[in-house]
Simulated assay, not measured.
Amino acid sequence: MSYDTQTPQSPQAPQVAVRNGLGTAALVLGIIGTVSGLVPPLFWLAGILGLIALILGLVGRGRVKRHEANNKGVTTTGAILGLAALILSVIGAVITITAVSEAVDEINKAVEDSAPKDPSSTAKGDAGKKDIAKGLAAGDMAAYDDLKVTVSEAKPYKPSQFAPGHTKGNKAYQVTVVIENSGKEKFDATLATLNARAGKDGVTAEQIFDDRVGTGFTGTILPGKKSTVVFAFDAPKDAKNLSIEVSPGLDHEASQWELKIG
């Protein structure tokens, strides 16, 4: 009589599906985020991808500990790269913000430099305390950043018989204008222009040209040097004042002197 002997078998442990997707995603996003972080303007992309990679990497490591995944190295590397991308994003943000700030400062400086420069009045005695908006007096100085302009008092002038700009019956007056270059670069004096008005109605006072006056400013003025020119203007016989407006150039605002005549 025979008996079948069977060895009892222990039940097999249930199979757990391997879930390596989070670790792989963390690695891919970490690599892209780190590369983006090396380009400062892409700091925002590095920050986003780095944060996601770090989170996925940490969650993936949790799966590895629970034996739900077996890509511990990939998951750890993804988390580390995610952290690196976050650090690079902060550095990139600092670099980008600093660069933008410096660029804005340079633009503002360029705009300020290109804007017309306001003259501040300095003069002899108490005349320098005058409000420049009301006009300067004879001998007062209009001081710019790089120039100083002075207009003398008006003196009677006798033009030649056929001098252009003079009308018979009117009176002529001469003024001496001095431009001093107080800057560090040479100044193109040919850019300086003068205009004049006379009387209470402010009629145009024509500039007189003859063999003694009318040439205007010419050439350049070196730093520390001056240029002096005499101008003559035609005014109505009853005019009591002569307004002289001097514009040193395109980069400077015009200044005005109110001179007594008659």
Rank of each mutant, 00 (worst) to 15 (best):
D251R: 08
S121I: 09
I244E: 02
D238M: 04
G57I: 06
P248S: 05
Y144K: 09
D113F: 05
T176Y: 03
A172S: 00
A189P: 08
K237R: 06
A93K: 06
V149K: 04
Q6H: 01
I80E: 07
A137G: 07
L45T: 06
D126Q: 10
L29Y: 10
G78R: 01
D118T: 10
A196I: 00
F217W: 00
T228K: 12
N241F: 06
T215W: 04
G50E: 07
E180H: 09
G82V: 04
Y3P: 14
K171I: 00
D113Y: 07
G82E: 04
K184A: 15
G214R: 14
V230I: 13
M141A: 07
K134C: 12
G37L: 05
E106M: 07
A46K: 03
V64D: 05
N195S: 15
D126I: 10
K260G: 12
G199I: 00
S121Q: 08
N170R: 07
T5F: 08
P14A: 12
I55A: 15
A46D: 12
S89R: 12
A26R: 01
A137M: 03
T193D: 04
T75Q: 09
P116C: 10
D234L: 06
T204R: 02
G262I: 04
E102L: 15
K186M: 08
G224T: 13
T218R: 10
V229A: 04
R61P: 09
N108S: 14
I95V: 11
E206W: 09
K72N: 14
R61Y: 11
F231P: 00
R19Q: 08
G30M: 01
V149G: 03
Q9K: 14
A26Q: 01
L259M: 02
I208Y: 04
A25C: 05
S114M: 10
D126G: 13
D238E: 04
E153V: 02
T5G: 03
Q15N: 03
L38N: 02
P223I: 06
I208M: 02
L191P: 02
S10I: 09
G47F: 08
I179K: 02
A127C: 11
A239V: 05
V175E: 11
G139E: 03
G73R: 15
I55G: 14
A192I: 00
T204L: 01
L259W: 03
K200F: 14
T77W: 14
K237E: 07
E253T: 15
T220H: 15
P14K: 08
T150Y: 07
V151F: 00
A163H: 04
D126L: 12
P14M: 07
E68R: 03
N71A: 05
N108V: 11
T220N: 15
G78M: 00
Q174C: 03
G128F: 02
P119A: 06
S114F: 12
G21I: 11
P248R: 06
D210C: 06
Y3L: 15
T150V: 14
K72G: 13
A93R: 07
P159S: 09
G249S: 08
I132P: 10
A138S: 06
A103V: 15
N170S: 04
T75K: 04
G214N: 14
Q6I: 00
K171E: 06
R61F: 11
V16A: 05
G135Y: 00
T34W: 03
I179V: 11
L22N: 03
G125F: 09
L29G: 07
F217R: 00
E102S: 14
G60S: 15
G249R: 05
L42Y: 09
I107Y: 05
F162R: 04
Q161S: 05
A26L: 00
